[in-house]
Every structure is written in structure tokens, then in C-alpha cells.
């Protein structure tokens, strides 16, 4: 293992700040999200409201993101993922589903600052105008050449996730997009 991007890496201080997050617990859940019994069983272990298409919901314990019509991504603190997985496994019982702990598959970055929207817009083909993309929405897309997903926590803070194998590339391109002097001043 070499050059693993982790929380130990110093944040990049550009015109926004790019930092790697502490490991996050992540569960992939696939199943028939249009099935009432499935949803009922799911709600026994998931405390947040279930997200509708392209949304993410949060409470103090977890976030749940809509990945596709048959897939959710559940985010928890890293040390709680095993417990939640066991709970879900039990709640869903014999229903047809797939549940996998993918915590170590992905990394998460926080981008924060006044111009967080435009830094993301430099890398992803997504309309980030404030009337198009708002906190609560969740978007899978690409950042440069790599697949990623992001959501806004507030007007000044975004979270970006991507596969761990491309973590360094993601950190570097976010940092490049945030380089002082490269401001576009799109929405400020």
C-alpha cells in the first residue's frame, strides 16, 4: 500500500478547501424499492426517510442516498456499519436483496468554501446553478475521467465520493480546480 489518501493528508487550501474525510461506513443495498413489503422491512432498520430519486436523506445516525431505481447507499459512522448490516440482514429476512459492506471501497472528500458550486462545476457535467441543484439532492456523475457522486450539505459545503483506487486522482483534480487565481465567479 502506497500513497493512500486518508484523513492524515493535509487538506488543500485553495479558494475552497479540499479535505479527505475519516473513513465512513457504507452499505450498498439492492432490491425492489418499489415493493411495499420490502420498504416496510427496510424502515425497521433505517431511521431516515427513504430518499426519492436522485435525493439523499440524513439524520443524526445515517444518510441514505438514492443510487438507482433498485439501489441505495447507506452511510453511517465507520464503527457502526457492521451492526447496521446485521440489523438490515435480519429485517429483510428472506426477501430478494443484496447487502454489502462497501466501506473500504470508496473514499469521501469534503469541499468547503463560498465557491464550492463552481469548483464542482469545473469537473462534473452537472448544472450546479442554485435553482437547479440544492442540498438534499444526490448526483452520480463523473469528475474529470472518473465516476463519482456528490451532494451539498449546505451552500458552502459539499461531499464527494469515489472509488478508493482513484482517490489520489480525485484529490489532485479537486485541488487543481480550487487553485487560487482560477476563480470563475459564476454564482457569487
Amino acid at each position: 500500500m502506497s500513497n493512500l489518501i486518508s484523513q492524515a493528508n493535509a487538506p488543500f487550501e485553495g479558494y475552497v478547501t479540499v479535505s479527505a474525510d475519516a473513513p465512513m461506513g457504507m452499505l450498498t443495498l439492492r432490491g425492489d424499492l418499489s415493493s411495499k413489503p420490502f420498504i416496510t422491512a427496510l424502515k425497521k432498520s433505517v431511521s431516515t426517510d427513504l430518499p426519492s430519486a436522485c435525493q439523499i436523506t440524513h439524520d443524526e445516525k445515517m444518510s441514505v442516498a438514492w443510487m438507482s431505481p433498485d439501489e441505495l447507499l447507506i452511510l453511517t459512522p465507520y464503527d457502526q456499519v457492521a451492526g447496521l448490516q446485521a440489523k438490515l440482514q435480519k429485517a429483510l429476512g428472506k426477501k430478494h436483496f443484496l447487502l454489502a459492506d462497501v466501506s473500504d471501497a470508496r473514499v469521501s472528500f469534503t469541499v468547503s468554501g463560498d465557491k464550492v458550486r463552481e469548483v464542482i462545476a469545473k469537473l462534473a457535467p452537472v448544472d450546479l446553478a442554485p435553482d437547479h441543484f440544492a442540498p438534499g439532492m444526490f448526483r452520480r456523475t463523473r469528475f474529470g475521467q472518473i465516476s463519482a457522486a456528490f451532494w451539498l450539505l449546505s451552500e458552502t459545503e459539499a461531499r464527494v465520493i469515489c472509488f478508493r483506487s482513484v482517490a489520489e486522482f480525485m484529490f489532485n483534480q479537486l485541488s487543481a480546480a480550487a487553485r487560487p487565481g482560477s476563480e470563475v465567479d459564476l454564482w457569487s
Binding site: A53, C54, S68, P69, P125, D127, R139, R140, T141, R142
Partner: peptide, 12 residues
């Protein structure tokens, strides 16, 4: 048609 996102060619 699955996520209703207006996806630009490079996302496809």
C-alpha cells in the same frame, strides 16, 4: 428514463 437526469454525452 430511470433517474430522470439530463445526462450529457460524456456521462453515457
Amino acid at each position: 428514463p430511470y433517474c430522470s437526469v439530463d445526462a450529457e454525452e460524456t456521462e453515457l
